[in-house]
Simulated assay, not measured.
Amino acid sequence: MPWIPIKSADKLLSSQILKLPEGKVLRVESFKGDRWFEVKRNGEEFEFSEHGYRNVVFKVKKEEVKETVKRIIEVEFPRSHQLRVSLSS
């Protein structure tokens, strides 16, 4: 899943994050690659790492994933039309 449209990004990313296996990292970045966030699963919690306008690391529960993804997209990618998505270990 290399490029996804920003309009449907929150739904697509939320479903991918909830299915994320332990030890894998989902990275979402802007076209230029200067702003990004990564998500890593730790049991029932998900660790989000933002890099761009805000440089923070925090954990959320399964129920908060969709809201968190939507908020991060609004903050980190306000003018983007597409996002690059990659999965690594």
Rank of each mutant, 00 (worst) to 15 (best):
V57Y: 11
L13T: 00
G52C: 05
E22S: 12
V85R: 03
Y53I: 15
K24V: 07
I4V: 01
W36N: 10
F31I: 14
V85C: 01
T68S: 05
G43I: 07
I6Q: 07
V28A: 07
K19I: 10
A9V: 03
D10A: 14
G33S: 01
F46Y: 08
R84M: 10
R71E: 08
S30M: 03
D34M: 10
W36S: 09
D10S: 13
S8W: 13
N55H: 15
E22Y: 06
R27M: 09
I72A: 04
E63R: 07
G33Y: 00
V57N: 08
L12V: 14
M1D: 08
E45T: 14
G23Q: 04
R35D: 06
S14D: 06
V39N: 00
V57Q: 10
V75D: 03
P21Y: 02
S14A: 00
E22Q: 09
L12G: 03
K61C: 10
K62W: 09
E38Q: 11
P2Q: 15
S88G: 14
T68C: 01
F58A: 02
R79T: 15
K11M: 06
G43W: 03
P5W: 01
I4Q: 00
S8D: 13
S80P: 09
V60W: 00
E29Y: 09
L83C: 02
V56T: 14
N42R: 14
S15M: 08
V60M: 04
K7M: 04
W3N: 12
Y53Q: 07
V56Q: 12
I6G: 01
R54C: 06
S30N: 02
K7S: 13
R79P: 12
R79I: 15
D34V: 11
F77K: 06
E76W: 08
K11N: 07
E45F: 09
W36Y: 14
G43F: 01
V39R: 00
K11F: 04
F31Y: 12
W3Y: 09
E67T: 05
L20E: 04
P5E: 06
V57F: 13
S14L: 02
F31N: 05
D10Y: 08
V69W: 01
R41S: 07
K7V: 07
K19T: 15
K70Y: 07
E38G: 06
E63A: 09
D10G: 11
E64P: 06
V85P: 01
P78R: 00
M1Q: 14
I17T: 02
S86I: 09
I72S: 03
D34R: 15
K40Y: 05
E22A: 12
F48R: 02
N55M: 11
E44W: 10
P2R: 12
L13I: 03
F48C: 03
R35T: 12
L18H: 08
K66R: 13
P5K: 04
I4S: 01
E76S: 12
W3M: 13
E74Y: 06
S15E: 13
R79E: 11
S15N: 08
R84L: 13
L20V: 02
R71F: 04
V69N: 00
W3S: 12
S49I: 14
K70E: 06
E38Y: 02
I4P: 00
K40C: 13
K32E: 13
L83S: 06
K70T: 05
R27C: 11
N42M: 15
L18V: 08
V25R: 08
K40A: 13
M1I: 14
E47G: 10
S88I: 09
K70V: 05
K24N: 08
E63W: 09
S15Q: 08
